[in-house]
Amino acid sequence: MRGSTLTTNTIRTRPASGLALLGTELSVLFRRKRTWAMLAALAAVPILIAIAVRLTRSGSGGGAGPAFLDRIENNGLFVVFVALGVCVPLFLPLTVGVVAGDTIAGEASNGTLRYLLIAPAGRIRLLAVKYVGAAAFCLAATLVVCIAGALIGFALFPSGSVTILSGDTVSLGNALGRSLLVALYVTVSLLGLSAIGLFLSTLTDVPVGAMAATIILSVTSEVLDQLPQLGWLHPWLFSNYWLGFGDFLRDPISWANFVTNAELQGGYIIVFAALAYGRFAAKDILS
């Protein structure tokens, strides 16, 4: 692992442009064994759910368990939505926290940060590239859950037209399109958390600390979201709209939550990217 990082870094010492830097960043990120392990763990969630439902057929009490669980037997596509409902509150923030918390602190602890900052005005560009890398992981993680869920769902359960939340029935193609929108919604939902992770990552040279802090913040936000006494705070919490992806399963599709959520995440990105810049621009790079 160490050896491979070192060789890639010798390539990365003089990137021609931001795009080249981004290319190497993405290839390093998605060639890491840790990234693959996390994506595999995420893919395991829909697979386990589908197998469990398949083995315990017709035993489920209506309405118990995660949302949509009892729909799986009618249509395999619902594995995707059950899995996302399970992953969004915990597993996705966990993996995103690891990737986002590692962005700067990981390089610092590897002793590779100084090589990345040789080019003038390199710091802003490096922050941007690191953030885009974390965002790419958000998209990849969400798509892995969706694709694994759809494949295992259609393998074990019937497909065909889908009954959506409004009680209307739509064609399978329509439902697959809606699933892609759901994946987009979930990806956008995780962007605010990624920005927080990026900022925390600039504070320390210990990547585990930044990862833990990011994950703890996401759990804290979700706990605060559960307390009715803090209702005034809820619209400001980055996790408040995380489970709003069901809006794409209504007829007609409701875009209100998507827009509000995107604005909220955008606010978090602006604030925490600026904070990360403030911290990182004048940070003494000792490693």
Binding site: A67, F81, L165, S166, G167, L243, F245, G246, R250
Partner: peptide
């Protein structure tokens, strides 16, 4: 009338 709930709906 659609009552929009989290991951659920009543019509």
């Amino acid at each position: 009338v659609q009552n929009l709930e989290s991951l659920a709906e009543r019509d």
